[in-house]
């Protein structure tokens, strides 16, 4: 474990806490893409299939359980909780996210570390996470003004994988045999998708103005 990865995991956890706070405090999921939440639930379920078979550390197991439980809880809230469900705007959240699932799985069948069930689902989860934010970014562009908590949620979610890139650089420089091309390349693509959001987020922070993404 290094400081970049720990900071990345904590930023990821923070993004989830901010989203939970937004949904709990406002009893609303306006501006939140249910599809992105569903994709993230699939990402964690596919990536942590080895939750009970591979013990790495208490921290690792604990965080995996937190990520799986929180992502499922958020999807449940948006789909089932009567107050929150009413605020979900399905006319804005129209990204065909099943295409992202299909494309990621197809890519994982060709590009993986080993042709085993666990490794194909691991690679699938890496590719899917890289594009999972797309429905959310599209929804933000459509919904015009973005409430602070939702903006902060997306910011921290994008920042965490950026910190992981620093972690991979650090490990590449300090560990002799460290190579994680699938995770690294996907992580760079994932972080790059946030580039314009980060730009408008920085502008809104600098001008102390409302975050607004151009349509």
């Amino acid at each position: 474990m290094n400081i970049f990865r720990l900071a990345g995991d904590m930023t990821h956890l923070l993004s989830i806490l901010v989203l939970l706070l937004k949904i709990y405090a406002t009893k609303s999921c306006s501006g939140v893409s249910r599809k992105t939440q569903e994709l993230y639930a699939i990402v964690f379920l596919a990536r942590y299939l080895d939750l009970f078979t591979d013990f790495i550390s208490v921290y690792n197991t604990f965080m995996k359980i937190v990520f799986i439980a929180s992502s499922l809880a958020i999807v449940w809230c948006i789909r089932v909780h009567p107050m929150v469900k009413r605020s979900y705007d399905k006319d804005l959240d129209t990204f065909r996210h099943y295409l992202l699932v299909a494309a990621s799985f197809l890519l994982a069948l060709f590009l993986h570390e080993k042709f085993t069930f666990l490794e194909i689902f691991w690679a699938f989860s890496i590719y899917l996470e890289a594009v999972a934010i797309l429905p959310q970014l599209v929804l933000l562009q459509r919904s015009g003004n973005v409430d602070n908590l939702t903006g902060q949620y997306v910011f921290f979610l994008g920042a965490y994988r950026g910190l992981y890139i620093l972690n991979w650089i650090y490990r590449y420089l300090t560990e002799p045999r460290f190579t994680r091309w699938i995770a690294c390349v996907s992580g760079v693509v994932q972080t790059a998708l946030y580039a314009d959001f980060f730009y408008y987020y920085f502008i809104s922070w600098k001008n102390n103005s409302k975050l607004k993404l151009p349509a």
Binding site: M1, R5, I56, S57, N60, M63, K64, N167, R180
Partner: peptide, 10 residues
Amino acid sequence: AEDGKYHDEL
């Protein structure tokens, strides 16, 4: 042992 495992990252 942690770094020996392959997928030791979240």
